[in-house]
Each structure stands twice: as structure tokens, then as C-alpha cells.
Simulated scan of single mutants.
Amino acid sequence: MSTEAVAKRLVAMCRHGQFEEAQHELYAKDAVSIEPEAMANGPMGNVQGLDAILEKGKRFQAGVTQLHGIEVSDPLIAGNWFSVVMTMDVTMKEYGRLTMTEICVYHVKDDKITREQFFYDTGG
């Protein structure tokens, strides 16, 4: 699967809220997930390994009371890298309803996502 094919598959799955399914299908077992520096050491911080990425997703989902909408841009591809803009309209248990927008950057090797890195404002 080319980087473009992986990117298009991830976008399609994310647009349907199939995050965990996408991780199982498209991520390498030793993939890493990187958050902005201010978030790196928190409960939603940096992790390594598919199991840790899945657990991080479960922690995020546990804080969501309702997903009102999600938008994912078409991917922008450069070699083995691609990026998308993701915007989610969610109601969080702790924060109420908010719109979260981030740039998501991914690296693909051997047909699998080996790295995801997120860029967003952390309020600091």
C-alpha cells in the first residue's frame, strides 16, 4: 500500500469516526504518537507501541460525552509523509462543548503508519 493509499484509507476511516479500527488496520506495532510539548507528559501525551496508542484513544473517548461532528481534510502527501487537518466538534465531560482543530502529520514505512504527530494550541 503506497503512502497515498494509506493516507486516503486513514482519512476515509476517520471521517466515519473509525479511529480504533484505523489504528488496528494501518498502524505498525511499534508506532509512536507525539503530542505538542505542553501535553507530552500528560495522560494524552507521547506514547510508543500500538497497544499504548489504542489505550490513549480509549482515554480520550472516555472523556467525550458526545461527538457532534468531524471534518478531515484531504491528505497532503510528500514522499513517505502525509498530513491532514482534523476538526472535531465534541462535548467533553471536563470542558463542555468545544471545537478542536489540529494538524496531524504521519510517516509511513512498509505500508504502515510508524509515527503520528499532532500540532494544536494548548491554551498556553
Rank of each mutant, 00 (worst) to 15 (best):
E20I: 07
H68V: 12
K58D: 09
P75R: 02
I34L: 14
E21F: 12
L76C: 07
V11M: 01
G69W: 05
A22G: 15
E71D: 14
A62C: 09
E20C: 03
K29D: 15
A31Q: 01
M44D: 01
M39G: 03
K8R: 14
V32W: 01
K29M: 00
Y27H: 10
G57K: 03
G49M: 06
L26Q: 04
L26G: 01
S2Y: 09
Q61E: 12
P36V: 13
M13Q: 10
A40M: 08
Y27W: 13
Q61N: 12
G57T: 10
D74W: 07
I70M: 13
K56F: 15
N46W: 13
A5Q: 10
T3Q: 00
E55H: 11
M44P: 00
N46I: 09
E35K: 02
S73K: 00
F19S: 00
L54T: 06
N46P: 03
G69A: 01
G17Y: 13
Q23F: 11
N41S: 14
Q48S: 14
D51E: 15
A28V: 04
L54A: 05
D30T: 10
P75A: 05
S2C: 11
D30E: 12
E4G: 08
A5N: 07
F19C: 04
L76G: 05
C14I: 08
E37D: 11
L67F: 14
K58F: 11
A5P: 01
N41Y: 10
Q66G: 04
K29F: 08
L26I: 05
A28Q: 03
E37P: 02
T65Y: 03
K8F: 10
P43E: 15
S2T: 15
S73N: 08
D30N: 12
H16Q: 14
I34D: 02
T3R: 02
P43D: 11
A52L: 09
E4P: 04
E25F: 04
R15Y: 07
R59E: 10
G57S: 12
T3M: 02
R59Y: 08
V32N: 07
N41L: 09
H16Y: 08
V72T: 06
V64A: 11
I53Q: 00
L76P: 01
R59G: 07
V6I: 15
P75K: 00
A12L: 04
E35T: 10
Q48N: 10
V72Y: 01
H68L: 13
E55R: 14
A62E: 12
A12I: 06
G69S: 03
A22L: 06
K29I: 05
A62G: 15
D74H: 05
G49T: 07
R15C: 12
V47E: 03
K8E: 10
I53P: 02
G17D: 09
L26A: 06
L10I: 04
H68P: 06
S33I: 01
D30I: 08
G69H: 01
R9S: 06
S33Y: 08
C14R: 03
G57P: 04
H24Y: 05
G45R: 02
A5H: 03
L54C: 08
